[in-house]
Design a protein around this nucleic acid. Structure first.
Lengths: 246, 246
DNA sequence: CGAGAGCTTGAATGGGCTCAAGATTTGTGG
DNA sequence: CCACAAATCTTGAGCCCATTCAAGCTCTCG
């Protein structure tokens, strides 16, 4: 049912400090400096979700925000005709579910067995009002999200299929929390399905699969259990260059 | 050099109250309620830009944010290979140029002769720290931007060319400040070039042109000076349905 | 071990791109 | 105000990449 407690706690400890200070020297025992989020922790509630389980649906009241402790979440948009788009993936450490409006405009689903903490929106907003630092940090989270969205928009609007797949793998490699075991950074976990990846990249599962296969044949990556190992970062960066439109 | 002062002042007066209260009953003489932005106005500086002129470039220090008084602005991303993407258009009333980082990740250029106000970032952040309402409003602006970005991502990832063009026209019609003269809402100004539209929609200028032509032939829209007139909103909403992928 | 979901691979199709040429609009200077 | 050049926009023909359709394979887990 719930994920193994040891791992979760370890990740949570690393994560509560916020993602911004990843570059700082690690202080495993206790957090070095107070994070703007610390004040919120008293309001946090943990909850585990199974693979595929819905966290919230489009249209639901947006009265909470969430932080990923372990696993992963997809933000999904559907239209009248049943077409699907995965706007974002949220990985351990990411905060999500903040909205300007009262209702969700996307739904959120666990891509794997996942543990989240949620905070009541009223508490978050009250704390933000009192502690300028938290308000500022929340604004930063939103603006970073916007920046990432701009990059995804460029990818969707201007990059060829091969480039999209390569960019996705590189992004996942960069965002992945440093692998606890064997942290050479080359092993990238891909908890989501091909359908999720395809719907995120604006492609079909077949096209994703074909491009992954080509990368494997080239020796640029190697397939692993539920992910890939990056063998040649440089080749991956250049993959599909020239295939481009314009 | 500068835009005609009368028009600018009129728009500015309407605009300083913020976009959120468009639905409120119009009080032409003096603003009814204090907007969270009012406190900022003392720090605002006006500046006019000519068509095509750069407001800021990618990499520049992000030490200001801007509000559009008249005209329009495009947020542009370029990659190594010269491919271009227009992430957003900013229209009168829109606030833009807030960043999480210290440097611009996109550049901004006027799509027409344009008047902006800018506010020093330090002033904005200091005020946000003091006045919770402003901080909250800025967060809302960022989150609304994120929501709009998600819609654009869906468009780029999952919609066919015709649908993209139709969606763009409908969005412009909705966002356009109520036309001062002849405000039947059907006349949509398109100050940007076909290249801008194409680079926003992830298409080529030829494809944009062809779809506009088809809409004109169908009688769904009619071409005007530098824009279009929407003749059949319903048909425009359904345009390209069935052309879709999946 | 069996069933179903997820993934891979192949062949054919088509929507949007490329290349190309002409029409229209905009801007500028005489 | 007009003429000319440059920029922008439209239209046509052919091609290519990603999709579609189809079939077989491989995990997962009950």
């Amino acid at each position: 049912m719930q994920a193994q407690a040891g791992t979760t706690a370890a990740i949570a400890a690393a994560v509560f400090k916020g993602r911004a200070d990843r570059a700082a020297p690690p202080t495993p025992a206790r957090p070095a400096a107070a994070s703007p989020f610390d004040a919120l922790e008293q309001f946090g509630t943990r909850r585990a979700f199974r693979r595929g389980q819905e966290v919230y649906a489009a249209g639901d009241p947006a009265d909470r925000c969430y932080r990923v402790l372990s696993g992963g979440v997809r933000a999904v948009g559907l239209d009248e005709e049943g077409r699907r788009h995965v706007a974002e993936f949220f990985l351990p450490g990411d905060l999500f579910g903040l909205e300007a409006a009262d209702a969700r405009h996307l739904s959120a689903e666990a891509v794997a067995d996942t543990v989240l903490v949620w905070y009541p929106r009223r508490a978050v907003e009250a704390m933000a009002e009192r502690h300028g630092a938290l308000g500022r940090r929340l604004r930063e989270v939103a603006l970073q999200g916007l920046r990432r969205a701009h990059e995804t928009m460029f990818l969707l609007g201007r990059k060829a299929a091969g480039e999209r797949v390569a960019a996705f793998l590189l992004e996942m490699a960069e965002r992945a929390p440093a692998d606890p075991c064997r942290a050479d950074g080359a092993r990238v976990a891909l908890p989501m399905t091909r359908a999720d990846i395809a719907d995120h990249l604006g492609l079909t599962i077949e096209t994703v699969s074909r491009n992954m296969a080509r990368l494997c044949r080239d020796g640029t990556i190697a397939a692993t259990k539920r992910g890939v190992e990056i063998r040649d970062r440089r080749a991956l960066r250049g993959f599909g260059a020239g295939t481009a439109k314009h």
